[in-house]
Design a binder for these strands. Structure first.
Lengths: 195, 195, 195, 195
DNA sequence: AATGAATGAGTTTTCATTCAT
DNA sequence: GATGAATGAAAACTCATTCAT
């Protein structure tokens, strides 16, 4: 069955990102992905349980490594303010660097059914946990108010970043994304209101 | 063809919301919607161009009337701060009052393909314009900073509200939504950072 | 039920010829014919039993009047040779004068199912009888050989004329049809072989 | 896609001839053809682009091989008169030997739409070319008149044979077809008129 | 491990026809 | 007689998945 890892596993994931970004999820037949990956249709099923499993594996793979990289990078930072800014920057940088991946995560992955979305959320937990730990540290250090609603804060941060990226994708990445990090960070930290 | 309005038009829209919320978009066959609406399958096509058109019409209908109601309500409010709070409240109230509709807009509608999403965005423009006008007024009145990035502010506001609602839906509306409006409004206005 | 004759009956027949010639039989919905005829869909069914009945009635109407006219015209002719030539000429003239009708009889009418084709053949019998009477007279008068196979001769004459007309229609009536009558007549009378 | 040739390709063609002859084109569901061929519905689409493609492929296959056989056979014949007679004989023999095929070519194939008929004519060109070459040779050798209208002669020959076969089919092949070849040939060569 | 030919379930949409007004 | 809104049956085609080689 699914033998995670292996050269072909990566090949298929990468082919899937490309094919789905180009054709959209519903026009990305398994056979098309197989052709792009240079393997036979049946081979897909040696590495993935089914078509959905490609999508979720793709997300796990890309998001997983992103969370690991982010954790490492944030560890070397002491200031809470810097940590949040850095996280936003890394988020934007990762997707700006791989537009195909951005299309898949921001648009195509959402076309999946409810069951799949639950599994996606499972993967997202790692990322949301990262945000949460920054919030917890900030509250402890007195950088954030002690009665901050952490769940809501997490949702606001994620919702805002996500919306910014989605807009960038839907506008055909016509402008640069990473430069927005600072202003987005400020807006989240100090709000819209004039000081 | 599409004879917008008429009793049957409404009947079918309402049936679609119910059926899609219960079964998910991909398991909501036209015949199932027709049965729920108490009309023949073919009748659907006297009022809608195709199955997708039901979905987009549904959104236009519900979102359109929401925007109109919001506009009227906001007009009677003078304070910018109150306006934003009111908008958030109305947004949350509308979806909390109709959980089926919330499921459809937050989950099922997003499973649509790119072409459909473009049309959805078209409808959303009315709502985003509402946010924008509040921001513009706030900047003029000095409530918001004069160098506020309005596009980003709009995305942050919408992304945050949307994420809050989606989480509520995915948590099976186990908690109350409207009470979150105030805290969400505060977070958007003053940010996460301790004053 | 079917109230043959009446102004609307003619209107619908003429609309059908036009619509079918323009759109082809399978794209000529009853509603399209009704619109062209300036009547409601349901009105069609006051004059015709069903859609097929329009087609067969159309053919009966047009072919019937053609056979009557031909009979009258041939009666005033005494020479067998002239009669055959005249029949061919009238056949070609009738269809050259009404290209829409030619499209319908040569192409669209043949797309009908077997049951309908039987009824068409019924109508054709009048025409084939006309050919037959010329052949009988010719044999009696010694113009044709006494051991001529009349059934086959009838098929050869009809098949040849029909094929000539069909070719003309399929070549978008780019050349004139009636001028071919004489040469076609000669070929049928004296054959291909050099005298 | 269309993997022309292969055992299944033939199987499906033969099943289609049988099913269409029995039920008529419009009542020959793809699933019915598949069942008769002993393959799954989907398999049809590995060998044919769509349902129409079965029909046209069937005609190409059967007509194509007939033209090739005819060409070979005619090559060994020197007399023009014999060649024409032989061609007629082979035409009648081929269809008399396969009544199902005759039903399909004479009746069902004509129920196809205009687009398909164009493709059928394309296939027919090979056969008409065969007739044409006999005519050309005959004119050269002085067997036919030098001012014979070749296009019309071709239409007369084809139209006559075709009509004879169609009548035979519509009369439920109650009589023998091949014995008519000689008399048909004579009629085409020397015409109806008494010498 | 890899292949790819074969499978067959599943659904939107059209349009001839009806019938209450 | 005339209307036209409503009906509902009917079928081609796709594509994820399997399994013999």
């Amino acid at each position: 069955m699914a033998k995670k890892k292996g050269q072909k596993f990566e090949q298929i994931i990468d082919a899937a990102v490309k094919v789905i970004a180009e054709n959209g999820y519903h026009h990305s037949q398994v056979s098309k992905i197989a052709r792009e990956a240079g393997v036979a249709d049946g081979t897909i099923y040696l590495y993935f349980k089914n078509k959905e499993d490609i999508l979720i594996s793709l997300f796990e793979e890309k998001m997983g490594s992103f969370v690991i990289r982010s954790k490492e990078r944030l560890a070397s930072e002491t200031s809470v303010e810097q940590k949040l800014k850095l996280l936003i920057e890394m988020h934007l940088k990762q997707l700006e660097a791989d537009y195909d991946l951005a299309i898949v995560t921001q648009l195509e992955l959402r076309q999946s059914n409810l069951a799949l979305r639950s599994r996606i959320n499972e993967v997202l937990k790692g990322y949301l946990g990262l945000i949460d730990s920054i919030l917890a540290e900030g509250m402890e250090k007195g950088f954030f108010s002690p009665d901050l609603d952490r769940r809501m804060a997490r949702q606001v941060i994620f919702g805002a970043i996500d919306e910014v990226v989605t807009n960038w994708v839907m506008k055909d990445h016509k402008y640069e994304l990473v430069p927005l990090a600072d202003s987005l960070n400020q807006m989240l930290l100090t709000g819209l209101r004039k000081a």
